[in-house]
Design a protein around this nucleic acid. Structure first.
Ligand code: MG
Ligand code: MG
Lengths: 412, 412
DNA sequence: ATTGTAAACATGTTTATTTT
DNA sequence: AAAATAAACATGTTTACAAT
């Protein structure tokens, strides 16, 4: 309890929490009856309510091993501690371990911490606490001075690996939630391409740290091995891997802006929120997305999308998504072709050298007619069924086992 | 353009933006026709699209004075610059000015920057750029070394004043938007109460920096002088002013948890999002909320709410809000009474000394029956009409003149 | 090539001190 | 009392480099 909180009111609240007068979250039955009480009786006054709360608590008292109030949700599980010690190799007689703390990497430890949390998400400080609680080595280095190193590494790993996804905290002023994106099979991902793309195309063996051996640590099924796209965002991601930072062209901005959104539904009604479907700093998840087969696959989807685009109204929020996806696909396809033909600068030069004609208001331009560039790609049209419902569903990038779609927070 | 972005693809994109090949956002007519084109024709290829874009651009070319690509939206407005110079007093012959840069405070400058932006929001680096662009003094101190001081002050002001509200950026990895909350008439707000509450009760004169004189800088109406509550959140804010940090009691958490939410509507379906209606670090907006009249007003609302609470289902998301509001009201009312009676510790002692009885599952407890505390408050019941629609409306804390409800971003 | 480690840096929050 | 100023600190992002 901070000394600066001098008022009685604050003291009361602190005591309520710190002395665990309230039942833990496991006692939800009691609370249902409490709700009934409130609904059946007239207005309960505070002190009476407190009496009632006292009556119902206590039996569910749980020892809180964490230091401060922000880590209330962290409970010590001896069984888990044992399992982790085994995985670390601390119970083996071997003297040589991968790291000072055992045989697990930082990424694996962080994944364990998050996966063993109630809501599959933790704040940075909660991750720190988890480490101190479960990893003996870090427990010995918990003080300010000696913790700087490994805490830095924790932060480094959270940022570096794209399987760790930061979600803004709903409570203003509190730090973000760190979650796990199970679709990112590749735990470690470069944020920026190395200088030349030659080295990039080599196939890379990626390890999956998230679902390892023991059953207690993870009840998550790993049934997402197929290369089908799970969301529009995934498609975009695969397109934008080679760009370090991506600014959406103004033209697209305007197109989106000019199509007024629906007020209903889950879709947000501002242009800006549409951008939430456009993560600027994207990362290649599966290298094999590069293969020509996959390019054709995109082609297929894109072709389907463009046909459906003609049938729906501007006001339909799906319209915006489709435009987005198509534009991206086309731009990247064109560029991919340029790369393959080794005439990298042609396209660019051509565009830059084109003298700007006068504006044609509301003109009916035929895009397929004009000028330039021999990059005609064969468009494979198949029986790919890609209707609205499908797109709609695809966009729900739900986590498998979490109770709610945590990534909605970043969408809306 | 960064040297590290070596791929042609990136170069293309950069050129598109930096050379302003795309029309500015004012040319939405062109874009509508472009959308029609896409819908009417078959699939437009990238290079054709580019040609079209070139045709339509150029006339709307605007000089971009900002240094790097993240500040694309910042345009230099000579007229605005002139107005600001006048407000700074740079055109006066006076030698003595409030600050080295003129007669406006940091808070006033930041407010001007945001209010003159397209979308009424800027990132931190955009605010920096605005200062360098419009304030001569800062323009002379734009380099790394000499800018640390005033940039620190900018950040300090953004955090300190609760009229500046931080909204997470929809684009993952980008820094937050800074917006203005026009309901916060008091620009400066302490984040934490000073040591003793004696000094707090003195009435404080607060200045409103947001709508000052000139018409160009602000088309915002200042018609929120009444003390009526504009949202449930406002009510909560006024309750929680005296708490530096507020953890919601577990009991309430459980109550909310046990009432399953509806899947429809704008309301989020996770307990955690309910907390978004419960800003932990709240701040007193109007000191007069302390007065007894206002306490009774809350009493009124609270009473109404509690009656309606009895009529609605747990699954109704409004139910949660009402519980929230009522609980808060009662707790604070009780504490307020304790303070008035100068028996501050009685209530607390009583609660702490109460021996915890055994749990009563699904019992029908009468809250008004039991024990303790002589703090019976007279509940004024009036004709206050507070139905669902009202609550629903109250929660839409829309900005007056902004095109969309930017604060929805922090709600959902 | 993967991982650990250090460090520079940006962005926010908060407290303390000085100036006015 | 309000504003400017300095500074400590937490949280994230990114680069560099060493160890394996
Ligand atoms: Mg990450
Ligand atoms: Mg603020």
């Amino acid at each position: 309890m901070r000394a600066s909180c001098s008022s009685i009111v604050t003291d009361d609240f602190d005591d309520f929490n710190e002395k665990n007068l309230y039942p833990s979250s496991s006692s939800s039955n009691n609370c249902i009856s409490l709700i009934n009480d409130i609904q059946n009786n007239d207005f309960p006054f505070f002190d009476d309510l407190n009496d009632e709360i006292c009556k119902r608590s206590d039996s569910h008292y749980e020892q809180d091993l964490s230091q401060n109030s922000s880590q209330k949700t962290l409970h010590y599980d001896p069984q888990l501690a044992n399992l982790i010690e085994n995985e670390l190799g601390l119970n083996d007689c071997q003297t040589s371990r991968k790291n000072a703390w055992g045989n697990l990497s930082y990424a694996e430890l962080i994944a364990k911490a998050i996966q063993n949390s109630d809501q599959q998400r933790l704040t940075l400080s909660q991750i720190y606490s988890w480490m101190i609680l479960y990893i003996p080595y870090f427990r010995d280095k918990a003080d300010k001075k000696s913790s700087t190193g490994w805490k830095n590494s924790i932060r480094h790993n959270l940022s570096l690996h794209n399987c760790f996804v930061r979600i803004p905290n709903e409570i203003a002023g509190k730090s973000s939630w760190w979650t796990i994106d199970h679709r990112a099979k590749q735990v470690r991902g470069r944020k920026r391409l190395q200088s030349n793309e030659n080295s990039t195309k080599s196939s890379k063996t990626t390890t999956n740290y998230l679902n390892k051996s023991n059953s207690t640590c993870s009840n998550l099924t790993n049934n997402q091995q197929s290369t089908t796209f799970t969301s529009v965002r995934d498609i975009n991601k695969s397109f934008y891997h080679h760009l370090s930072t991506q600014t959406m062209p103004n033209i697209l901005h305007d197109m989106l802006k000019s199509s007024s959104p629906l007020q209903t539904s889950n879709y947000s009604n501002s242009v800006d929120n549409i951008y939430s479907l456009n993560p600027t700093k994207c990362e290649l998840i599966d290298n094999e997305y590069y293969s020509l087969n996959n390019v054709n696959e995109y082609e297929m989807i894109s072709s389907k999308l463009s046909k459906q685009l003609k049938t729906i109204d501007h006001s339909n929020p799906l319209f915006r998504r489709m435009v987005l996806t198509i534009m991206r696909h086309q731009m990247n396809k064109s560029k991919l072709n340029n790369n393959n033909n080794n005439n990298n600068n042609n396209e660019r030069e051509k565009i830059l050298s084109t003298p700007p004609p006068s504006i044609i208001e509301n003109s009916q331009c035929n895009f397929n007619s004009s000028s330039s560039s021999s990059t005609t790609t064969t468009t494979t049209t198949t029986t790919f069924d890609f209707d609205f419902e499908t797109i709609y569903d695809l966009d729900k990038t739900t986590f498998e086992d979490s109770q709610f779609n945590i990534h909605d927070l970043s969408h809306f």
